[in-house]
Write a protein that binds this DNA or RNA. Sequence first.
DNA 1: ATGGTTGCTTAGCAA
Length: 264
Amino acid sequence: MPLPFVAATWNVNSLRMRLERLLLWLAERRPDILCLQELKMEASLFPTEQLRQAGYHAAVVGQKAYNGVAVLSRIEHGELVDVVPGLQDDVDDPEARLIAATVPALGVRVLSVYVPNGQVVGSDKFAYKLAWLRRLRRYLDQRCDPAAPLLVCGDFNIAPEDRDVHDPELWKDTVICHPEARQGLDEVRAWGLDDALRLVCPDGGLYTYWDYRQLAFPKNHGLRIDHVLCSRPLSQRVQEVLIDRQARKGKHPSDHAPLLVTFR
DNA sequence: ATGGTTGCTTAGCAA
Protein backbone atom coordinates (compact mmCIF):
# COMPACT_ATOMS: atom_id res chain seq x y z
CA MET A 1 0.00 0.00 0.00
CA PRO A 2 1.37 3.45 -0.91
CA LEU A 3 1.76 6.04 1.83
CA PRO A 4 -1.04 8.57 2.25
CA PHE A 5 -0.01 12.19 1.77
CA VAL A 6 -1.23 15.78 1.48
CA ALA A 7 -0.24 17.92 -1.52
CA ALA A 8 -0.92 21.65 -1.67
CA THR A 9 -0.47 24.59 -4.03
CA TRP A 10 -0.26 28.27 -3.15
CA ASN A 11 0.43 31.39 -5.17
CA VAL A 12 2.08 33.51 -2.47
CA ASN A 13 2.44 36.76 -4.48
CA SER A 14 6.00 37.53 -3.34
CA LEU A 15 7.72 35.06 -1.03
CA ARG A 16 9.66 37.92 0.55
CA MET A 17 6.40 39.51 1.71
CA ARG A 18 4.83 36.18 2.65
CA LEU A 19 7.66 34.19 4.29
CA GLU A 20 6.56 34.72 7.87
CA ARG A 21 3.00 33.72 6.96
CA LEU A 22 4.22 30.71 4.99
CA LEU A 23 6.32 29.44 7.91
CA LEU A 24 3.36 29.74 10.30
CA TRP A 25 1.14 27.97 7.78
CA LEU A 26 3.65 25.13 7.25
CA ALA A 27 3.91 24.62 11.01
CA GLU A 28 0.13 24.42 11.24
CA ARG A 29 -0.74 22.35 8.16
CA ARG A 30 2.40 20.27 7.62
CA PRO A 31 1.58 19.31 3.99
CA ASP A 32 3.85 16.60 2.59
CA ILE A 33 4.22 18.48 -0.70
CA LEU A 34 3.73 22.18 -1.43
CA CYS A 35 3.96 23.90 -4.81
CA LEU A 36 4.57 27.64 -4.66
CA GLN A 37 4.12 30.27 -7.37
CA GLU A 38 4.91 33.96 -7.81
CA LEU A 39 8.00 33.91 -5.64
CA LYS A 40 9.07 37.18 -7.30
CA MET A 41 12.70 36.66 -6.35
CA GLU A 42 15.93 35.35 -7.74
CA ALA A 43 16.77 31.80 -6.72
CA SER A 44 19.85 33.07 -4.86
CA LEU A 45 17.53 34.92 -2.44
CA PHE A 46 15.31 31.89 -1.79
CA PRO A 47 15.15 31.09 1.96
CA THR A 48 16.41 27.52 1.61
CA GLU A 49 17.84 27.38 5.12
CA GLN A 50 14.75 28.74 6.89
CA LEU A 51 12.57 26.24 5.07
CA ARG A 52 14.94 23.43 5.97
CA GLN A 53 14.68 24.45 9.61
CA ALA A 54 10.92 24.34 9.14
CA GLY A 55 11.27 20.75 7.94
CA TYR A 56 11.18 21.09 4.17
CA HIS A 57 13.44 20.47 1.21
CA ALA A 58 12.94 22.78 -1.76
CA ALA A 59 13.59 22.91 -5.49
CA VAL A 60 13.28 26.39 -6.97
CA VAL A 61 13.52 28.45 -10.14
CA GLY A 62 13.52 32.19 -9.69
CA GLN A 63 13.86 35.46 -11.53
CA LYS A 64 13.99 39.06 -10.47
CA ALA A 65 10.63 40.75 -9.70
CA TYR A 66 8.31 38.33 -11.52
CA ASN A 67 7.20 34.70 -11.63
CA GLY A 68 9.31 32.10 -9.79
CA VAL A 69 8.07 28.65 -8.70
CA ALA A 70 9.13 26.01 -6.20
CA VAL A 71 8.37 22.51 -4.98
CA LEU A 72 8.68 21.86 -1.24
CA SER A 73 8.54 18.45 0.41
CA ARG A 74 8.88 17.27 3.98
CA ILE A 75 12.42 16.29 4.84
CA GLU A 76 11.31 12.85 6.08
CA HIS A 77 10.33 11.94 2.48
CA GLY A 78 13.92 12.33 1.29
CA GLU A 79 15.87 14.83 -0.78
CA LEU A 80 14.05 15.94 -3.93
CA VAL A 81 15.54 14.18 -6.96
CA ASP A 82 15.50 14.63 -10.74
CA VAL A 83 14.94 18.37 -10.36
CA VAL A 84 14.31 19.88 -13.80
CA PRO A 85 13.64 23.60 -14.34
CA GLY A 86 11.58 24.99 -17.21
CA LEU A 87 9.75 23.54 -20.20
CA GLN A 88 12.90 22.05 -21.72
CA ASP A 89 12.04 22.89 -25.32
CA ASP A 90 13.83 24.94 -27.95
CA VAL A 91 11.98 28.18 -27.13
CA ASP A 92 14.19 30.93 -25.70
CA ASP A 93 12.04 31.75 -22.67
CA PRO A 94 13.50 33.48 -19.60
CA GLU A 95 10.28 33.32 -17.54
CA ALA A 96 10.52 31.09 -14.44
CA ARG A 97 7.17 29.30 -14.60
CA LEU A 98 7.80 25.58 -14.13
CA ILE A 99 9.87 23.25 -12.01
CA ALA A 100 9.67 19.47 -11.72
CA ALA A 101 10.94 17.25 -8.93
CA THR A 102 10.37 13.75 -7.57
CA VAL A 103 9.61 12.98 -3.91
CA PRO A 104 11.41 9.66 -3.34
CA ALA A 105 9.50 8.18 -0.41
CA LEU A 106 6.12 8.99 -1.94
CA GLY A 107 7.04 7.91 -5.46
CA VAL A 108 5.40 11.02 -6.92
CA ARG A 109 6.61 13.32 -9.69
CA VAL A 110 5.55 16.92 -8.98
CA LEU A 111 5.29 19.90 -11.32
CA SER A 112 4.77 23.40 -9.91
CA VAL A 113 3.43 25.63 -12.69
CA TYR A 114 2.59 29.30 -13.08
CA VAL A 115 0.67 29.63 -16.33
CA PRO A 116 0.93 33.10 -17.93
CA ASN A 117 -2.02 35.37 -17.15
CA GLY A 118 -2.34 36.65 -20.71
CA GLN A 119 -3.54 40.12 -19.71
CA VAL A 120 -5.91 40.85 -22.64
CA VAL A 121 -7.42 38.57 -25.30
CA GLY A 122 -5.70 39.28 -28.61
CA SER A 123 -2.47 40.59 -27.03
CA ASP A 124 1.02 39.11 -27.42
CA LYS A 125 0.75 38.03 -23.81
CA PHE A 126 -2.41 36.05 -24.54
CA ALA A 127 -0.70 34.35 -27.49
CA TYR A 128 2.16 33.47 -25.11
CA LYS A 129 -0.34 31.99 -22.64
CA LEU A 130 -1.89 29.74 -25.31
CA ALA A 131 1.54 28.74 -26.64
CA TRP A 132 2.73 28.01 -23.09
CA LEU A 133 -0.18 25.59 -22.56
CA ARG A 134 0.67 23.81 -25.83
CA ARG A 135 4.29 23.59 -24.72
CA LEU A 136 3.18 22.13 -21.36
CA ARG A 137 1.18 19.44 -23.18
CA ARG A 138 4.23 18.63 -25.31
CA TYR A 139 6.36 18.47 -22.14
CA LEU A 140 3.95 15.89 -20.68
CA ASP A 141 3.97 13.90 -23.93
CA GLN A 142 7.74 13.80 -24.09
CA ARG A 143 8.85 13.62 -20.47
CA CYS A 144 6.07 12.13 -18.31
CA ASP A 145 4.18 8.84 -18.04
CA PRO A 146 0.40 8.98 -17.60
CA ALA A 147 0.52 5.55 -15.93
CA ALA A 148 2.82 6.87 -13.18
CA PRO A 149 1.84 9.05 -10.19
CA LEU A 150 2.10 12.69 -11.31
CA LEU A 151 0.89 15.98 -9.83
CA VAL A 152 0.65 19.17 -11.85
CA CYS A 153 -0.13 21.90 -9.33
CA GLY A 154 -0.26 25.64 -9.62
CA ASP A 155 -1.86 28.86 -10.74
CA PHE A 156 -3.27 28.14 -14.20
CA ASN A 157 -4.89 31.56 -14.59
CA ILE A 158 -7.87 29.69 -16.07
CA ALA A 159 -11.31 29.09 -14.58
CA PRO A 160 -12.30 25.78 -16.21
CA GLU A 161 -16.06 26.36 -16.16
CA ASP A 162 -18.58 29.09 -15.38
CA ARG A 163 -19.30 27.52 -11.97
CA ASP A 164 -15.69 28.47 -11.11
CA VAL A 165 -16.42 32.20 -11.55
CA HIS A 166 -18.40 34.46 -9.21
CA ASP A 167 -19.88 36.46 -12.10
CA PRO A 168 -19.55 34.54 -15.37
CA GLU A 169 -21.09 37.35 -17.43
CA LEU A 170 -18.55 39.85 -16.12
CA TRP A 171 -15.65 37.47 -16.86
CA LYS A 172 -17.00 36.06 -20.14
CA ASP A 173 -14.30 35.94 -22.85
CA THR A 174 -11.60 37.44 -20.63
CA VAL A 175 -8.20 35.71 -20.52
CA ILE A 176 -9.39 33.69 -17.49
CA CYS A 177 -12.50 32.26 -19.18
CA HIS A 178 -11.84 32.54 -22.91
CA PRO A 179 -12.74 29.38 -24.88
CA GLU A 180 -9.20 29.15 -26.28
CA ALA A 181 -7.69 29.30 -22.78
CA ARG A 182 -10.15 26.68 -21.51
CA GLN A 183 -9.37 24.50 -24.53
CA GLY A 184 -5.65 24.84 -23.80
CA LEU A 185 -6.28 23.53 -20.28
CA ASP A 186 -8.53 20.77 -21.65
CA GLU A 187 -5.72 19.63 -23.92
CA VAL A 188 -3.29 19.50 -21.01
CA ARG A 189 -5.81 17.47 -19.04
CA ALA A 190 -6.53 15.19 -22.00
CA TRP A 191 -2.97 13.87 -21.65
CA GLY A 192 -4.34 12.03 -18.60
CA LEU A 193 -4.93 14.39 -15.70
CA ASP A 194 -7.96 14.89 -13.46
CA ASP A 195 -8.93 18.04 -11.60
CA ALA A 196 -8.65 16.72 -8.02
CA LEU A 197 -11.26 19.08 -6.60
CA ARG A 198 -13.88 18.01 -9.12
CA LEU A 199 -13.32 14.35 -8.29
CA VAL A 200 -14.83 14.95 -4.87
CA CYS A 201 -16.90 18.14 -5.07
CA PRO A 202 -19.33 19.45 -7.72
CA ASP A 203 -20.13 22.73 -5.92
CA GLY A 204 -19.88 26.17 -7.47
CA GLY A 205 -18.76 29.16 -5.43
CA LEU A 206 -15.42 27.52 -4.56
CA TYR A 207 -12.63 29.95 -5.32
CA THR A 208 -8.88 30.17 -4.76
CA TYR A 209 -8.29 33.79 -5.82
CA TRP A 210 -9.94 37.06 -4.88
CA ASP A 211 -8.83 40.49 -6.12
CA TYR A 212 -7.40 42.76 -3.42
CA ARG A 213 -9.82 45.50 -4.52
CA GLN A 214 -13.43 46.26 -3.66
CA LEU A 215 -13.78 43.82 -0.75
CA ALA A 216 -13.74 40.93 -3.20
CA PHE A 217 -12.81 38.36 -0.52
CA PRO A 218 -15.49 39.16 2.08
CA LYS A 219 -18.04 39.25 -0.76
CA ASN A 220 -16.63 35.98 -2.16
CA HIS A 221 -16.16 37.59 -5.55
CA GLY A 222 -13.54 35.04 -6.55
CA LEU A 223 -12.22 32.70 -9.22
CA ARG A 224 -11.09 29.09 -9.10
CA ILE A 225 -7.85 29.35 -11.06
CA ASP A 226 -5.43 27.34 -8.87
CA HIS A 227 -5.59 23.62 -9.50
CA VAL A 228 -4.18 20.30 -8.40
CA LEU A 229 -4.21 18.01 -11.43
CA CYS A 230 -3.31 14.35 -10.94
CA SER A 231 -2.65 11.35 -13.16
CA ARG A 232 -5.02 8.35 -12.96
CA PRO A 233 -2.95 6.34 -10.45
CA LEU A 234 -3.45 9.24 -8.03
CA SER A 235 -7.04 10.08 -9.04
CA GLN A 236 -8.35 6.95 -7.41
CA ARG A 237 -6.62 7.94 -4.16
CA VAL A 238 -8.14 11.43 -3.78
CA GLN A 239 -9.85 11.50 -0.42
CA GLU A 240 -10.47 15.12 0.51
CA VAL A 241 -9.94 18.63 -0.87
CA LEU A 242 -9.69 21.88 1.09
CA ILE A 243 -9.39 25.51 0.06
CA ASP A 244 -7.79 27.14 3.10
CA ARG A 245 -9.71 30.43 3.24
CA GLN A 246 -8.20 31.13 6.66
CA ALA A 247 -4.90 31.77 4.91
CA ARG A 248 -6.52 34.53 2.81
CA LYS A 249 -7.61 36.42 5.96
CA GLY A 250 -5.89 38.84 8.31
CA LYS A 251 -3.05 41.24 7.66
CA HIS A 252 -1.03 41.10 4.45
CA PRO A 253 -2.43 37.96 2.84
CA SER A 254 -1.66 36.75 -0.67
CA ASP A 255 -4.55 37.32 -3.06
CA HIS A 256 -4.68 33.50 -3.44
CA ALA A 257 -5.64 30.86 -0.86
CA PRO A 258 -3.84 27.50 -0.63
CA LEU A 259 -5.53 24.43 -2.08
CA LEU A 260 -4.86 21.13 -0.26
CA VAL A 261 -5.59 17.60 -1.48
CA THR A 262 -5.38 14.47 0.68
CA PHE A 263 -4.42 11.24 -1.09
CA ARG A 264 -5.20 7.98 0.69
C1' DA B 1 -16.91 61.19 -5.28
C1' DT B 2 -14.95 59.26 -11.77
C1' DG B 3 -12.05 56.07 -7.09
C1' DG B 4 -10.84 51.05 -6.27
C1' DT B 5 -5.07 46.97 -4.21
C1' DT B 6 -0.70 45.08 -3.86
C1' DG B 7 4.21 44.30 -5.12
C1' DC B 8 8.29 45.41 -7.60
C1' DT B 9 10.85 49.13 -8.67
C1' DT B 10 11.04 53.92 -8.67
C1' DA B 11 6.21 56.10 -12.29
C1' DG B 12 4.90 52.47 -14.61
C1' DC B 13 3.88 47.63 -15.21
C1' DA B 14 1.70 43.35 -13.88
C1' DA B 15 -1.75 40.80 -11.77
